[in-house]
Amino acid sequence: MLLGEKLSKTYSSGNVLDNVTVQIVPGQIYGLLGRNGAGKSTLFKILCGLIKPDTGTVSVQAARAKSIGAIIEKPGLYPYLNAADNLRIFAGIQGLSQDKGHMTQHLMKVGLPIDRKDPVRNFSMGMKQRLGIAIALLNDPEYLVLDEPFNGLDPIGVASLIQLIQQLAFTDRIGILLSSHLMVELTKCCHYLYVIDEGKMVNAGFTHQLIQDHIQRFSIAADNIAAAQAIQAYQPVIGMNDVKITCPASQITTVLQQLMAEGIRITACTPELTLEQLIKQPRA
């Protein structure tokens, strides 16, 4: 288990972290949600031992040589080296094998092409993120900490990265902590969510539970839905391709059943949860 307990950090600019506690278990994916400047990166740096907290402790129960692999803020790569040479440098400094076979294996694991020989400064952000993850995974860490891994990625890149993260958690039993200010991406892949605001942990819980407790709006896409009777009681807002309704999560099943009874063919129903809701309404 990776446990950061009652962590606080103050800089001259103010209090960045205030009595924050997080806990990561192998094989599970955790999300840390927060606006820019909420204290996410500082928390990650403390968990990884890059900076010291003013108060609180970090304890890691890990049987492997490297307990935590991480990318914080951006993947730090040598821009003048190619992907394999970057891996070789970081493997070499830990005394790991640098042979071609191992390097190829690491590149393939994160879905990077093995035939690119040009410097990584030419790589797209998605490829840099993948190489950063490959480096973080060197020496087989028990936990992986990824700070804003979806930044700069297109939707295909995001989907592909989520797939990789899930594979690492489920197949390799790595405990993963992700941060983002993008709600949708985190709710798609995390078992558990932490919400941080102005350095304080303002909300936490299992993702499905948080959604159930906080969700108040749904986007429903369906043919002829604008005229449907079932949604009229839920303040429908008609959009180009969907209708947004305001209703508690406990009632959505009933609404959908009524729509189907009216003969409406539903193609999608997406909960719309905002970060603000999670920040302003902590779970009871």
Partner: peptide, 13 residues
Amino acid sequence: KDGTIQTTLLQAV
């Protein structure tokens, strides 16, 4: 500048 100091010190170094 390149952030590689973080990447390096996040390894077993």
